[in-house]
Design a protein around this nucleic acid. Sequence first.
RNA 1: GGCGAGGUAGCUCAGUUGGUUAGAGCACAGGAUUCAUAACCCUGAGGUCCCGGGUUCAAAUCCCGGUCUCGCUACCA
Length: 711
Amino acid sequence: MNTPKRYLITAALPYANGLKHIGHLAGAYLPADIYVRYLKAQKRDVVFVCGSDEHGTAIPIQATKEGTTAQAIIDKYHPIIEQNFKDLGIAFDIYHRTSDALHHETASAFFKDLEAKGDLETKTSLQYYDAAANSFLADRYIKGTCPNCGHHEAYGDQCEKCGKSLSPEELINPVSTLSGNVPIKKETTHWYLPLNKHEDFLREWILKEHANDWRPAVVGQCKSWIDGGLQPRAVTRDLDWGVKVPVAGGDGKVLYVWFDAPIGYISATKQWAKDNGKDWTPYWNDAETKLVHFIGKDNIVFHCIIFPIMLKLHGHILPESVPANEFMNLEGDKMSTSKGWSIEMDDYINKWIKKENGGTGLADSLRFYLTSIAPESKDSEFTWKGFQESVNGELVSIFANYVNRTWVLMHKLCKGKVPPIHPDLLDEEDNAILQSVKDSKAKITELLEQYKFRDALFEVINLARIGNQYMQKKEPWIVAKNLATDPTAQAKIDNCMHACLQLCANLAILVNPFLPFTARKMCYLMKVVDKMLDWENAGNFNLLKVGYSLRPPELLFRKIEDEEIEAELSQLQTNLKAKKITMDTITTTDASTAPEANDNAFKPEIVFDDFGKIDLRVGTIIDAKKVEKADKLLQLEVELGLEKRTILSGIAMHFEPSDIIGKQVVVVANLAPRKMRGVESKGMILMAEDAHGKLYFVQPSEAIAAGSKIS
RNA sequence: GGCGAGGUAGCUCAGUUGGUUAGAGCACAGGAUUCAUAACCCUGAGGUCCCGGGUUCAAAUCCCGGUCUCGCUACCA
């Protein structure tokens, strides 16, 4: 294994529109922090950068929601997120922000350079435009009905109810959130990054070079994108919140957030270098730097496809690895802040860490559990019960208990001082325990280098288990009963306790990347400086000097009680209900007070003649079947009296074809035909929809002749 | 529908290029012990390796088909 000259480690920039939950923590920040702490203990040259992503349309949207400015939003969340990370021991070398002038300069120059070299293309296209507000509408400024779940408040980029990614074109009944008007389409010019031109490079770099050392899911996802045919991607937007497009024709446009955000890694590095009197350039330009991006699986395409192309074009190094984690669920469901089904870092900190409740030990308890269930190879699940069992059963019972019994015994039998070794009495067990430490260190080191943090942490606990076994065999508390009769008794005790103490010192070093607060507390108990935690010290049994007096025993962690778990579980249900009520309230309030800005509101008045243009008829479904290669479409044959019609309807998720044959429906009979999935649809079925997105047929109260007019 | 990842003990997960009787930790049961946060230590019980075919002397592993979960993507007048 040849060691890189230096490391640059990044963790995904959290979006500064709200609080971040423990799923985010487990996905990117915690593994990154563990890796960095390990590298630093190895005395490697490493910089760990992160920062708030403060651009994009969701920020000004959130501002509107909270009745304030975009600047106020980021100024509110940036410091909270930064502090949350600190409280949980995520030790960035710098936590920067993309609203900073230095970042604007950096991103701006980056874009300018690519533009000047001809690496970008421009293209004119039709985009939604709000004539009343005199502005183009970013995805996030368009609301409409979600085509996936039928939610009325879906945004142009994503539906927050079902979480599906959308494009504005997909929305049903799109409405501008600025004025409430139906947007029109207007020409606009944007810059594009032609991903398609770099396909060969990506194939070579990812599918060949990294086919085996990157995680299967990462390579698989990339392969899927590359094989699917890469398209040019717009890198600018019509918006006034973000980094201004710095070239001619860029008025009123900013860099698209995903173009600007990853450059945030670079500007953060610059800021760090500035603050510390260093040169940032080798970290991004020198081939001997190892760059690693820690992210969640939703970010794979940006960090493995788009950003690498940008880096290559701008003359930077490429990431050596992108260890993306899968998702962490919570008690059987996906985590979602907006649904109230999540555990915010901020909440955990306030409840478990800050109070006299537990202090920093509880930060490590969370780090422990999250690491032990890290979604490294598949989605995993956080349960409070699991948290309790993991902490009580392994962290406390095995690890902390080992340290505690060592300390207590050492004070009882060795006067609180590191006892001497008596070489003539050393036996196989004593030699074996030293060898175990060396073996564990080698294993843990290897696993950490491979980003297998879950397994690495298990090895640390296992070493404590070995310590327990060793002590059990030696039974110093039994030996102590023979002090009067056995002249070698004290020497035997000394040898055992000496080994146990040295093992504790080793445990502190090895656990440090995972549980930094605990490692520090162990240093305190041992009365040693942090320097002892250097990785090179692990595997040695001379870390504590003979005769050195140590502090009295103190518990490293406390157990998690049943009542606390029950409280958390019911809190979760409460949050869920509270959020639901809030959402319902907002929906109804909006409908009554600001009808024009809400698509649940009544549409603008029309005259009778407008209505008269619509030919509504009663029809009877005489056949229904699923459309091939479409999950949501049903192909219906509808009897309209004068003729039979083929009508397609997006209701396949709600009804079984066999169940609806014979049903009477209301049909818009004179709607212009439209082809979907290769089948022409002549007309439209009217459906009613409740607040939960459930669909109902609109039909006459009693069966009447097919083709009957409705007016 | 297409693509990607996953499905192994009650739970959380390992199982490298096919090779004895499929492993670990929790949880559970029994035993031993008391230095330790009712902790530790020893022993044990537990599996149709999602289902069905195929290749092979030999399949959790390779191939084909199906099914379920998650993600990306298409479809929604």
